[in-house]
């Protein structure tokens, strides 16, 4: 074990680190420079402009799309406003029509009521007149009957009663009754 380690150390010491083998440095440096120059030109001539272009294009597309969306949104808002306005108009119109109809009905109703009232008043007056007539005629007949009856009673009692005194007496009695 120790032997092999020592031997290996000696071997490796002979070989050294490949990193410190200066004879290969020109080779590495040459190919490194070639590589870097190739990558630099590939990047600066082809890749970077292309990627920058793609990114710019995407940014432009996104901006355009956002603007279009903004526009559509505005349009939608306008349409909504128009719709709201139409709705409000229609509602106001409906209310107006309802109010008109209500007023019309009200006037008709008032007229009808007035007419009915008038008719009722007329009928009432007529009836009252009829009642008064009937009452007056009834009064007259009662008075006549009372006079006759009084005359008859006076005659039956043997008295002699002139018509005038009987009439006044009956009238006074009836007034006192009434």
């Amino acid at each position: 074990m120790a032997d092999s380690a020592v031997e290996q150390g000696a071997e490796a010491g002979g070989a050294g680190m490949p990193q410190l083998d200066f004879s290969t440095f020109p080779n590495q440096i040459f190919w490194l420079l070639v590589t870097l120059i190739v990558i630099y030109f590939v990047l600066s001539r082809v890749a970077l402009p292309r990627i920058a272009g793609i990114l710019a294009e995407r940014k432009g597309t996104i901006t355009n799309d956002i603007a279009a969306a903004e526009e559509l949104k505005l349009k939608a808002q306008e349409a909504e406003q128009a719709y709201d306005k139409a709705l409000a108009d229609a509602r106001a119109e409906a209310q107006r029509i309802v109010a008109e109809a209500k007023a019309e009905i009200q006037t008709e109703l008032d007229a009808e009521i007035a007419r009915a009232d008038a008719r009722i008043a007329e009928k009432t007056a007529e009836s009252e007149a009829a009642i008064a007539e009937i009452r007056a005629s009834a009064m007259d007949s009662v008075q006549a009957v009372a006079k006759d009856t009084a005359k008859e009673i006076v005659a039956a009692l043997g008295g002699k009663a002139d018509a005038r005194s009987v009439t006044s007496a009956v009238t006074a009695a009836m007034k006192g009754d009434a």
Partner: peptide, 18 residues
């Protein structure tokens, strides 16, 4: 390494898709 760079940055973006 150069081929990988070309493959990634040149061929990979050749479609230029959004």
């Amino acid at each position: 390494a150069v081929l990988c760079v070309i493959g990634l940055l040149v061929l990979g973006t050749s479609k230029r898709s959004i």
